[in-house]
Design a binder for these strands. Structure first.
Length: 120
RNA sequence: GGAGUCGGCCGGGCAGCCGCCGCCGCAGCAAUGCGGGGGAGGAAAGUCCGGGCUCCGCAGGGCAGGGUGCCAGGUAACGCCUGGGCGGCGCGAGCCGACGGAAAGUGCAACAGAGAGCAGACCGCCGAUGGCCCCGACACGACGUGUCAGGGCACAGGCAAGGGUGAAACGGUGCGGUAAGAGCGCACCGCGAGUCCGGCAACGGACCGGCACGGCAAACCCCACCUGGAGCAAGACCAAAUAGGGAAGGUGUACGGCUCGUCCGUACGACGCGUGGCCCGCGUGCCUUCCGGGUAGGUUGCUGGAGCGCGGCGGUGACGCCGCGCCUAGAGGAAUGGCUGCCGUGGGCGCGCAAGCGUCCGGCACAGAACCCGGCUUACAGGCCGGCUCCCACC
RNA sequence: UGGGGCGUAGCCAAGUGGUAAGGCAGCGGGUUUUGAUCCCGUCAUUCGGUGGUUCGAAUCCAUCCGCCCCAG
């Protein structure tokens, strides 16, 4: 069952810093993913949707929900990495389906980049 | 039926599956699992005001600084709200107004213009009075003087009505008046720190007075009232690792003593650096335990409150009082979502005389709690309810 | 989330009630064989927007918009 508990998230500033500083980056048209391997056996997600890129709070929330939902559904196919998703400027008003396609491309690239995917 | 105006309210609905965040119950050492129940707004926004709460400061009062500004009331408080006054807009219902003081003082007014503040005379008007010139009549006396009547000049002087400048020119209109004019006089309007009456007051009415007192206080200012500073990243508690602070104990060598012990006394400390050694100088102990401050991190503040609903009473109203009922988000890199079906609603297209039916839509606003309230302001697809006004038609 | 600051030509900016300084850049001209330098001229229909006060607003007041900084 695809759940999304607290342990599957990045919680502390240090964890974000580590992913952003040492992580490998995957860029798409609207989003950037920075990921670094962890030793937990499952992936963890952190979101950094800057106010500068998406000025309206309601749109930031919409994007974050969409990312979390697809992460929830895709996490069994992902390797054990800490990853931070950043919003790039200009993605404020894009339609939901466009965001879905962008996310799908990202998940595939992350899954392909690291050989050992989490199996449980 | 149309146009308008004011007030109140909603701002998608119902299901199914999969998730997210608190709370309660049960099980478990725990992680967690199962069950129940809850989970964004009218603006949650802008942060423009006012409070609560917390810490800091503080005897009281005043000054400075800041704010408010017709009057009265409401309120925890307000720059908010209600009622009233005055002014303006509208046929009207209604709407709008930073709306105290310019007679406390100091200032400001470019350019234009004669003159810009108790001013001024450019064009102009007059020239009654005085002056000069022309002419006539009369008197005296002999070509002059005087008196009177008429005409002219614009010299003295008078005027500020009209023209012109300006945003603004020292009350307005009319009549009288005058040489021409002028509040010089009168009527109405305006004005007034006068008197009386009504009103808690703002203010209004009547009478009286006389024409003096221009504008700007979102210029300084005066008057009245209010006002300490910072903010939940406030503040409180627990508290690693590392470094440093304080306290206690232990830890080196030599000699001597005896009750021969991890004992007592005395002396030298020891190590590193500066020169290998000495003197000298500088620097530093090590180990154990405890204490205090305190970082990371964690806990708390954290949601029951000037609360919401209904009813009654008082008040024109804002609002207040009483009774009954209800519990209604508390996250923390941050939940309140995803997919699907049906309905509602809007638009396009097709069929149909029409009602309507079918189909498509990546149509259905503004927008997301972060300590909590009261306001203001700004954004907002569409829709519902009620009061009132005006116009048209008909009975 | 809270606190603070700024907005004047393409850029840097002065001006704080009375015709919007100055510099760089640009454009036109002059000087020079040509270029650089230098000289002259030109460049603000909304002083971020909208209302208001005033005779008059970049300036004073209200409100909205945009940008930047600080506090983890």
């Amino acid at each position: 069952m695809a759940r999304f508990p607290r342990r599957a998230r990045l919680l502390k500033p240090g964890e974000f810093q580590a992913a952003l500083k040492r992580g490998k980056r995957h860029n798409d048209r609207w989003l950037t993913a920075a990921c670094v391997v962890n030793d937990l056996g499952h992936p963890r997600l952190g979101l950094a949707i800057a106010k500068k890129s998406v000025p309206l709070a309601t749109q930031r929330n919409r994007i974050k929900r969409k990312i979390r939902e697809t992460f929830r559904l895709q996490q069994l196919q992902l390797p054990a990495v800490d990853l931070v998703i950043l919003a790039r400027p200009g993605c404020a008003g894009i339609p939901a389906a466009e965001l879905d396609r962008s996310l799908e491309r990202l998940w595939k690239r992350i899954a392909a980049s690291s050989p050992g995917s989490s199996s449980d």
